[in-house]
Simulated scan of single mutants.
Amino acid sequence: MLSRHRRYFAILAFALLATPLIVGLFRPDSPELILKEGRMLAPAPQAPRSLEALRAFPGEADAYLKDHFGLRQTMIHTQRDLSHPVLYGNEKALIGRDGRMFYLGRDMVRQSAGLVLRDQKVADAADMLAEMHGALSRRGASLLVAVAPNSSTIYQDDLPLWAQKQGRKTEYDLFLADLAARGINTVDLRPVMENARADREAYLMHDTHWTARSAVLAFNAIVEADGHPDWRLDPQSSIGPPSERKGGDVARIIGVEDEVSEAVQELALPPGGKSQDLSPGPMPDWVLSSGRPGPTIMVIGDSFTASYFPPMLAQHVGRAIWLNHRECGFDWNWIDKLQPDEVWWMPTERFLICDEGVRPLNFAGSGEDHSPVVGGTSPDWGRLRWNRP
């Protein structure tokens, strides 16, 4: 039998372990906090119905619980105060030279350095895009692929030697080669971002994302390669004056968002038209209708393009649509319903490969005729919830 002081210690230990779980049941952290860390909220695990699903269940449950326990942000700040990661980084982020912060999740830094090379997964992603290319071609639409580079790909010299590429081949290299072999139109945005960096900051210091100016330069490179040079935007007049911004998604991950700041500029474009949500949630799919004649362009991407590309496109097209790529799990039915003339596949480099077993919903691939859906349920239009003009 436990002695009295050991019983008290056991009760205290149990209370400490149970508190985050109990708080998570009644007052969980907002999903927006996860999105601000530059990643998607882990979904709830499904009841396993096969041996393979049973083996995957512990990992899925662990990822879900990590995102849904209570006091998560408080514990991040406490860990920061105890270990001073602002000086050294931690298992989630790396502080490079000059204080630039790099996200370590999804093997981002190792991916940029060529230290992780998932050949088969890259080939699988290219195969999926080849199937999409075929399905879109049959309906008279086109596909273009342009992957936004990781900040660690562009700021290699800010990283320690172990995290630098040093001539190694990367997944970005493999991906472009695989797409070229399949005849898919691609735009390599790495030289664009390197040129942007030579002039001024291409990415935010304390955040995974590129700057608004870099988004404009990427847009210009894409429309040039896509045969729409008249859609190019002036980087000077398209960007507003600088303002001070505290924190960033990487700074938030390591709990120092209140201690760092930098000057940022945002898009300053005329109103693009009428915007409507296609889905609920903190980063919904959405459409921007300009009210003028012109093609329908659909961008399938992530937070790098969510608030930037529809307003830029709306200066020239009839409709600009943005869909969350959901690690390749976006809903193909939106293509059936909205019938875009062009689809731009634009995940960030760290989302270049699909999550395990994930494919577009309602898309069977090259073996099925993807004719437009007639009738069906209308989208549930809602109010905007993402950071848009």
Rank of each mutant, 00 (worst) to 15 (best):
G38F: 05
E91P: 08
G59I: 03
F69H: 09
F102K: 01
D98W: 06
R39F: 05
S30K: 08
M75W: 13
G99N: 02
Y64A: 01
T74G: 14
M40D: 15
P31T: 00
R49D: 06
E37R: 14
V23I: 13
I22C: 07
V23R: 02
A53V: 05
G59L: 08
K92D: 15
E37Y: 05
K66Q: 13
A113H: 05
D81V: 09
L33C: 04
F102N: 07
Q46M: 08
A61H: 06
E32A: 13
H68R: 10
N90A: 03
D29L: 02
V116P: 12
Y64S: 03
F57M: 01
P45A: 00
H77D: 12
G99D: 06
D119Q: 12
Q46T: 15
E52Y: 01
F69N: 00
D67Q: 06
F57L: 08
L104I: 01
E60C: 00
K36W: 10
R27N: 13
D29G: 13
L71C: 06
R72K: 15
F26V: 14
L71T: 09
L82Y: 02
Q111P: 10
D119L: 10
A47F: 06
E60F: 00
G24H: 08
R39K: 12
Q79N: 12
R49T: 07
M101W: 03
T78S: 08
A44D: 04
G38N: 09
Q79W: 14
Y64F: 15
E52Q: 09
T74S: 13
L117W: 08
A44I: 14
G70T: 12
D62L: 04
L104N: 09
A93Q: 02
L65G: 03
A47C: 03
E32K: 11
L33D: 12
L71S: 03
G24K: 08
R80M: 10
G96K: 08
L54P: 05
R100L: 13
E60K: 12
E37I: 02
G105N: 14
H68T: 07
K36M: 11
L117S: 11
G70D: 06
Y103K: 03
M108W: 01
P43G: 01
P28C: 06
S30L: 04
M101I: 07
G38Q: 05
D98A: 13
Y88D: 06
L82Q: 02
H84D: 11
R39N: 06
P85L: 05
M108F: 01
P28D: 02
G24Q: 08
L82K: 00
F102V: 07
M108N: 14
K121L: 11
G38K: 03
V109W: 02
R97Q: 12
M108L: 11
F26H: 02
R110M: 11
F26L: 08
F69S: 01
R72L: 13
N90P: 10
L71E: 07
L94R: 04
F57S: 00
G89R: 03
R118Q: 13
A44N: 06
R100S: 05
G105I: 04
D81R: 12
A56I: 09
S83V: 15
E37W: 02
L71V: 09
G70M: 09
F102Q: 04
H68S: 04
R55M: 03
V116F: 10
Q46F: 04
V109H: 03
A53P: 06
I34E: 07
A61Q: 10
Q79A: 15
P45Y: 00
R49Q: 08
D81S: 12
L65R: 08
G96H: 06
R27F: 15
F102S: 07
L21H: 13
M108P: 05
